[in-house]
Amino acid sequence: STVLEGLKYANSHEWVKHEGSVATIGITAHAQDHLGEVVFVELPEDNTSVSKEKSFGAVESVKATSEILSPISGEIIEVNKKLTESPGLINSSPYEDGWMIKVKPSSPAELESLMGPKEYTKFCEEEDAAH
């Protein structure tokens, strides 16, 4: 599966893209591949907050329902409402149109504990091998 440069990754398979004061969060290509075709996305409300490693929503496919954990803490400033009508965007464009929330990070230092692309690629390989 594709792993993009410039993003940070959590071991629960979410990605974060930090640009200026905004961090965009979604699930990785690897995660959507394992879930299969997504049929429903449960998203948080606007103007709520998320905490690192706490669930902010769920993704439902015909194979599984998975909680989505936030890689970082912060204030939600935007939610991708397109996913309600077109949950398949998570499969077709996990890193672009399939983003889930935009957050104003409350402790940007948390980003440093996340994996980089190389590390995450290796993590996925090891996880697949263990199964």
Binding site: V39, F40, E60, V62, K63, A64, T65, E67
Partner: peptide
């Protein structure tokens, strides 16, 4: 419909 909610009850 929505079988995974049951199989993978959260």
């Amino acid at each position: 419909a929505m079988q995974t909610r049951e199989q993978h009850i959260r």
